[in-house]
Amino acid sequence: GIDPFTGEAIAKFNFNGDTQVEMSFRKGERITLLRQVDENWYEGRIPGTSRQGIFPITYVDVIKRPL
């Protein structure tokens, strides 16, 4: 089901994660935001896939912030 505490964002740019914990994505992908890790990073996942990880806040347009 849908978790009411998650947020939502759209990727503004392609992001290629450097490490296992970073999640790569392509511009235009819809991302579920799980939490804000710190002032620069979100943790999120791509709905319908097993992809999950952290990524820079500046790479996405936030539609709804996670609670």
Results as ranks from 00 to 15, higher is better:
residue 11 A to T: 03
residue 5 F to P: 10
residue 41 W to T: 10
residue 18 D to R: 15
residue 21 V to W: 14
residue 32 T to M: 11
residue 63 I to N: 05
residue 61 D to P: 00
residue 20 Q to S: 14
residue 40 N to C: 14
residue 39 E to C: 11
residue 23 M to V: 05
residue 14 N to Y: 05
residue 9 A to R: 02
residue 36 Q to D: 03
residue 51 R to W: 03
residue 26 R to D: 09
residue 50 S to N: 15
residue 34 L to S: 04
residue 13 F to A: 12
residue 6 T to C: 12
residue 23 M to P: 00
residue 16 N to Q: 12
residue 28 G to A: 03
residue 23 M to D: 01
residue 52 Q to L: 06
residue 20 Q to Y: 11
residue 48 G to W: 07
residue 2 I to D: 15
residue 40 N to D: 12
residue 50 S to L: 11
residue 6 T to K: 11
residue 17 G to H: 03
residue 32 T to W: 09
residue 19 T to F: 08
residue 6 T to I: 13
residue 59 Y to W: 06
residue 30 R to F: 13
residue 17 G to T: 06
residue 30 R to G: 04
residue 54 I to Y: 09
residue 62 V to G: 02
residue 27 K to C: 08
residue 27 K to P: 05
residue 58 T to H: 13
residue 4 P to T: 14
residue 15 F to K: 02
residue 20 Q to G: 11
residue 45 R to C: 13
residue 66 P to C: 07
residue 47 P to Y: 09
residue 35 R to M: 07
residue 26 R to P: 02
residue 15 F to C: 03
residue 42 Y to D: 00
residue 28 G to S: 04
residue 44 G to I: 02
residue 28 G to C: 08
residue 42 Y to M: 10
residue 28 G to Q: 03
residue 21 V to N: 14
residue 61 D to M: 11
residue 59 Y to E: 03
residue 12 K to R: 11
residue 35 R to H: 08
residue 52 Q to P: 01
residue 21 V to D: 13
residue 26 R to Y: 10
residue 64 K to I: 08
residue 22 E to C: 12
residue 5 F to M: 12
residue 65 R to A: 15
residue 17 G to W: 03
residue 54 I to P: 02
residue 33 L to M: 06
residue 6 T to F: 14
residue 60 V to T: 04
residue 56 P to V: 03
residue 19 T to N: 13
residue 31 I to S: 00
residue 28 G to K: 03
residue 15 F to N: 02
residue 10 I to F: 06
residue 30 R to H: 14
residue 21 V to F: 15
residue 4 P to Y: 15
residue 61 D to F: 13
residue 17 G to C: 05
residue 31 I to A: 00
residue 44 G to V: 01
residue 34 L to T: 08
residue 22 E to N: 06
residue 24 S to W: 06
residue 5 F to Q: 15
residue 64 K to F: 08
residue 28 G to D: 06
residue 25 F to C: 02
residue 52 Q to T: 09
residue 44 G to C: 01
residue 2 I to F: 13
residue 3 D to G: 12
residue 9 A to K: 01
residue 26 R to H: 11
residue 22 E to H: 14
residue 15 F to Y: 13
residue 36 Q to A: 09
residue 47 P to Q: 11
residue 56 P to R: 04
residue 49 T to H: 03
residue 27 K to A: 12
residue 1 G to D: 12
residue 3 D to N: 12
residue 29 E to Y: 02
residue 51 R to M: 05
residue 49 T to S: 09
residue 48 G to S: 06
residue 37 V to I: 13
residue 34 L to Q: 04
residue 14 N to Q: 08
residue 47 P to N: 10
residue 67 L to V: 13
residue 36 Q to T: 06
residue 24 S to F: 04
residue 53 G to Y: 01
residue 14 N to F: 05
residue 9 A to S: 04
residue 39 E to T: 09
residue 46 I to M: 05
residue 39 E to G: 11
residue 10 I to H: 04
residue 12 K to D: 02
residue 53 G to P: 01
residue 66 P to A: 04
residue 61 D to Q: 10
residue 24 S to Q: 05
residue 49 T to R: 02
residue 16 N to E: 12
residue 1 G to R: 04
residue 12 K to T: 08
residue 24 S to C: 07
residue 12 K to N: 07
